[in-house]
Simulated assay, not measured.
Amino acid sequence: MNDKAIDSRMFIANVRGTPRFGNNIVGVLNQSDPVVVTGEQVGDRWLPCSVTLDGEQRDVFVSKNVLRDQVSPAKERLMRECVKQWLRFDKGNAKEHHSPHFNFVGEFWQAIPLNLDGKDRDVPWSAAFISFCVKTARGYSGFKFAAAHSKYAHQAIRRRNENVDGPYWGFRINEHKPQLGDMVCRSRAGSGATYDFALNNDAFKSHCDIVVRIAKDHVVTIGGNVRHSVSKTNYAINSNGFLEGNGKVYAVLRNNR
């Protein structure tokens, strides 16, 4: 019996009472919800699974196309927290300054901690979101919680170059293929940040998102203060699995936990 976890292409997966398409949907699972495969495949795609729906354990069928192997517990917790916040912000449709979401932004700021919320619209909160998710996930001791992405990106790149253990190591985009729980870092507001610049500096305009899904030609990430919400972003990857970058992505932070 293999442990699996949902990884839907649309962040949502239908679970069915019988192994076929049709009027047999008994529930919906979000990405990173746990699934246990309980038997052999039926037909061309259907796997018998045990899942939790509305607090009740159910035996259902799930398409193999929306399942992925589990990764480490720390990575799973981190991605689950990202998805939780994405759902809390109505899948990117809720805005930072609206009620009650401005209070949720305030929770992110407390991870630093700073006494701000979503009504402080002149202060970017994307790094506070990352700090909140990493802290809530647990298992990332030594992470540089900060109000600026450049602080922990610089830390991760320095640690990798100096071979110092840490929860994240920073790589050039042609050195490491992004994996679940990693971070994609790009320059912001014309800063023109590069890997070498980030190696030697910890104060520059930047943005990072957490990878929650690997597809054939792109990775899906979740980040905060993206279109004034918690939203997903797709980053293209080439046939070898490396980020294309498009001139803005300067580093991939590898999740070592």
Rank of each mutant, 00 (worst) to 15 (best):
E40F: 11
N255W: 10
P113K: 13
L87P: 00
P100T: 01
R20N: 03
H154K: 12
N2V: 08
V35R: 01
R80A: 10
P73D: 08
R213I: 02
E40W: 05
V220M: 05
N240G: 14
I25E: 06
G39T: 08
F21D: 14
K95I: 09
R88G: 01
S191W: 09
E76L: 06
R227T: 05
V15A: 12
A156I: 03
P19W: 02
A137S: 03
N103E: 12
G192M: 10
S141T: 05
V66C: 13
K119H: 04
F108I: 11
A198M: 15
F145L: 06
V219S: 15
L116Q: 08
R186W: 02
I237G: 03
G142W: 04
D202T: 05
D196M: 15
D202H: 08
D202Y: 10
V66T: 09
V249G: 00
E244T: 07
V28G: 00
A74F: 11
G139H: 10
F242D: 10
S239H: 09
T233V: 15
S239N: 15
S187F: 04
G181M: 06
W109E: 01
G139Y: 14
I112W: 13
E244L: 12
D90Q: 08
Q155I: 03
F171M: 02
G190E: 02
C82Y: 06
G247N: 04
L67E: 03
P178D: 01
K64G: 01
